Simulated scan of single mutants.
Amino acid sequence: MTEEQAAPEAASPELEKLQAQVRRYKRNLRKAEAEGFLAGILAMLKPGDLVLDCGANVGKISTQMARTGAQVLAYEPDPYAFAQLSEACAGLENVTLHNAAVGASGGKIRLMRAQNFAENPAAASVKSTIIGGGRMIEESDGIEVDLIDFPALLRQLTADGREIALIKMDIEGAELDILEALEEQGLFERVRCLIVETHERKFKDLRPRYRELRARVMAGPYAQRVFLDWI
């Protein structure tokens, strides 16, 4: 077989267009499924329930949580997004805001931002992360932010036997360490429902750990409590 014969044939413009349409359809389907799942969970919340929004960004989900009457604790480390979050939640007495990141340990940590943050902070703030090695992130500088030990926080909030009704977690890669810690420390049982966006697409080196964690969770006793396909 000659080199010319072995070379793969380039996709036609029509095929590329069809493939793009299929990708968009699949993304929209996943988005609809995730949003439908969240809507169902929110419909079951009631005043007095305790819910956490980790990676609250500008408050889209925090405000939906607040409308159920539940007590909302929202965590957002990026100062730009936190300012928008504060404005969105102004006057909501059942919402407590924390300008901090959450992780598997506590202290101070560097928050890195997307490379286009200066040009478009509104769109770029959703990509701010405390995890190095991700795509499209400027790692040469950053800002120091508070880091909350999330497993310790969860133990504190449930020390009196109270259950966390809902945790939504969208924290740009930091979720992996937290989920592994919650699993190891037996803390999944303290949460009624945990919905998470995982970011293995952005962190290639972490993909084996993501796959192993997903397999363990889905095969374990908490598979019905943990939704790992939030978008």
Rank of each mutant, 00 (worst) to 15 (best):
A174G: 10
L111R: 00
K127L: 10
K127I: 06
D160G: 04
N94L: 02
V145Q: 05
Q156A: 15
M169P: 07
D160P: 04
G133S: 09
D149P: 09
N99G: 06
A123Q: 10
E138Q: 13
A165H: 15
D149S: 13
E175R: 03
G133K: 05
M112P: 01
S125D: 10
S140K: 07
D141K: 13
M112T: 13
G173R: 07
V102R: 02
Q115F: 05
A123Y: 09
S128A: 15
E144V: 03
A123T: 14
S105D: 05
A101P: 00
K108E: 04
G133T: 09
A104L: 01
F150Q: 14
I131N: 00
A104I: 03
D170K: 07
L154A: 11
L166V: 10
D160M: 08
A159L: 05
D149V: 11
D160N: 05
V126T: 14
M169I: 01
G132L: 14
A104R: 11
L166G: 08
M112K: 08
M112Y: 15
I167M: 13
I164T: 02
Q156I: 09
G107N: 02
I143Q: 09
T158L: 10
R113C: 04
G132P: 12
E139D: 06
E172S: 10
F117E: 04
A122Y: 14
G106F: 00
S105V: 07
R110F: 01
I164C: 00
Q156R: 12
V102Y: 06
A152S: 15
D141Y: 07
K168W: 00
A174K: 00
E163M: 15
I137A: 11
I109E: 09
A174I: 10
S128P: 09
R113P: 06
L157T: 14
G107F: 09
G132M: 14
I148N: 04
I137R: 03
I137V: 12
L147C: 13
L153D: 14
A100Q: 09
H98K: 09
A152P: 12
V145E: 01
G173N: 06
K108L: 01
L111M: 04
S125L: 04
G142D: 04
D141N: 14
G107C: 03
H98F: 13
D141L: 07
G133P: 05
L166N: 00
M136Q: 13
E119P: 05
I164P: 01
T129C: 07
S140M: 10
A101Q: 01
D149Y: 07
N99Y: 03
A159M: 07
G173H: 11
E175G: 08
N120Q: 02
E93Q: 01
E139R: 03
D146E: 13
D149K: 12
G132A: 14
K168G: 06
E138N: 15
A124D: 05
R110P: 01
R155W: 11
